[in-house]
Simulated assay, not measured.
Amino acid sequence: MDTPKLTSKDVGFLLDDLCVRLGFCLDPTDQAALRASPPTNVDSFAEAVFRAEGLDASNYRHLWRQVREMVAQAFKKGSNPSY
């Protein structure tokens, strides 16, 4: 089974959603970097979001779970182009 990949468009929608719903509004430079070369798995992507915000995910367990769940949903949608 192939690992689902997020397109630049998928990443843009995810980052917009993270900003609106959880307040993770990344700097345009960080957004561009994630769009150009998105991490290839859920945990790596969620960690990259926290790093871009200057936060240590281990200090925000509840928020980490929320970010991770949103990222996981984006990866599921990315693996199912019929959505």
Rank of each mutant, 00 (worst) to 15 (best):
K9L: 11
C25H: 02
K9E: 15
S44A: 13
A74D: 07
A57W: 04
R35Q: 13
L15W: 07
G78C: 09
D27M: 04
F45T: 00
Y83R: 13
K76F: 10
L14I: 11
Q66R: 09
D17M: 13
R51I: 07
R65L: 14
A48N: 01
D17E: 11
C25D: 07
D43I: 03
D43C: 01
D56R: 05
A57M: 09
C19S: 12
N41W: 14
L63R: 01
D16V: 01
Y83W: 08
D43P: 00
Y60N: 02
F24I: 01
T29Y: 12
Y60W: 09
S44I: 10
K5I: 07
V71Y: 12
S79M: 07
V71D: 01
L15P: 03
H62G: 06
F24G: 00
A57S: 11
P28V: 03
F24W: 10
P4H: 02
F24Y: 04
D56P: 02
A48Q: 10
D27S: 04
E47Y: 14
Q73R: 15
E47H: 02
G54E: 05
V49Y: 03
L6P: 02
N59G: 14
L14C: 03
N59T: 09
M1A: 15
Y83L: 14
D43Y: 10
K76G: 07
P38H: 01
D30K: 11
T29G: 06
A32G: 08
A48K: 09
P38C: 00
V42H: 04
E53P: 05
L22Y: 01
T29N: 03
V67M: 04
D10N: 14
P81W: 10
D27N: 13
E69T: 12
A72S: 12
W64G: 02
Y83A: 14
L14G: 04
T40R: 10
A57R: 10
K9C: 04
H62D: 15
P39I: 11
E53D: 10
A74P: 12
S82C: 11
P38N: 02
